[in-house]
Amino acid sequence: MTMIFGIPLQAFLGQLLVGLINGSFYAMLSLGLAIIFGLLRVINFAHGAQYMMGAFAGFLLLSWLGINYWFALILGPVIVGLSGAVVERFALSRLYKLDHLYGLLFTFGLALVIEGGFRYFYGSSGQPYATPALLSGGVNLGFMYMPIYRGWVVVASLVVCIGTWLLIEKTKLGSYLRAATENPVLVQSFGINVPLLLTLTYALGAGLAALAGILAAPIYQVSPLMGSNLIIVVFAIVVVGGMGSIMGAIVTGYMLGILEGLTKVFYPEASNIVIFVIMAIVLLVRPAGLFGRDA
C-alpha cells in the first residue's frame, strides 16, 4: 500500500477531497459575508440562515411543486436574494446610521427567528434531498472512488467564486461597488443610487449563501440548523482572510477547508478546532487578516 508521511495514500487523498468540498462551501459563504461586510459594514449573522433557506428552497420547490434540482439552483438563490432585498430595504437600511453593532444584533436576531420558524415546522432532523440523476454515481480515480456529485460541487463553487470575483473586479457594476465600499457618500454625490446598490449587494450575498445551501442539500441533508453549525466556522475564516477582502475570503476558504481535512488525517483530535487555532494566531500576529488591507 502506498504511504505518504506514514499515512495510507488513500486516506490522505480521501480527506483532501473532503477538505476541498468543505472548502468549497467555506469559500462561497465567506465570499458573500465579505461582500456584504465590505459595502454595508454589517456582519451578517443571518448568513447561515440564508444558506439553510437555500437548501429548504430546493427541498420545498421539489416536494411542493416538483421543480427539479437544476431549476432550484437558479430559483432558490433568486427567492432568498429577494427576501434579503426586502430585509435590507425595510430593516437593515434603517440601522446604518447607528453603531455597527446594531446591524450585527439585528441579523443575529433574524437568524434565530428564521431558524426557529423552520424548526417549528420541520423539527431538527434532516430531510434527505436526492442527488440529481445526472450527477449520481461515482468514478474510480484509481487511487480512490469519487462521487460525481462531490466533484460537481468543487467545480460549481470554483465557477461561482471566480464569476463573482470577475463581477466585482472587471465590470462597471463592480467598479460602483468597489468605489462605494471606499467612499459611499462621494459615489452617491456622483449620481449613483448607492442605497439601491446596498440593497443589491445584500441580495447578492444572501443569494450566494442560498446557492451554497442548495449545492449542500444532497450531501448534508436539509435541516433548520445546518447553517448555524457551519456559520461559526465561516466567521473564523473571514477573520483569518481579512474582513472585506473578496479574494482573501475565497482563497482562505479553500485553504482552511483543505487544512481541516488534512488535520483529520494527521491529528484527528484537532480537526474540529484547527481553524479556530489559526484564527487566534492570525488575530494575534496580523489582526487585519492575511489579506486585509488595514485595520
Binding site: 467598479s175 460602483y176 468605489a179 471606499e182 454625490s189 449620481g191
Partner: peptide
C-alpha cells in the same frame, strides 16, 4: 444621488480618487 443629474460636477477638496479602481475606472465612474 439626484443632485449630479441636474448638471453639477463636484470636485472635492480631498479629490476622492478611488484606490481600488484603475485610473480609467475612476474616469468613467
Amino acid at each position: 444621488h439626484h443632485t449630479a443629474r441636474t448638471g453639477i460636477g463636484y470636485v472635492p477638496e480631498e479629490r476622492g480618487i478611488f484606490a481600488t479602481l484603475t485610473v480609467e475606472e475612476n474616469l468613467i465612474l
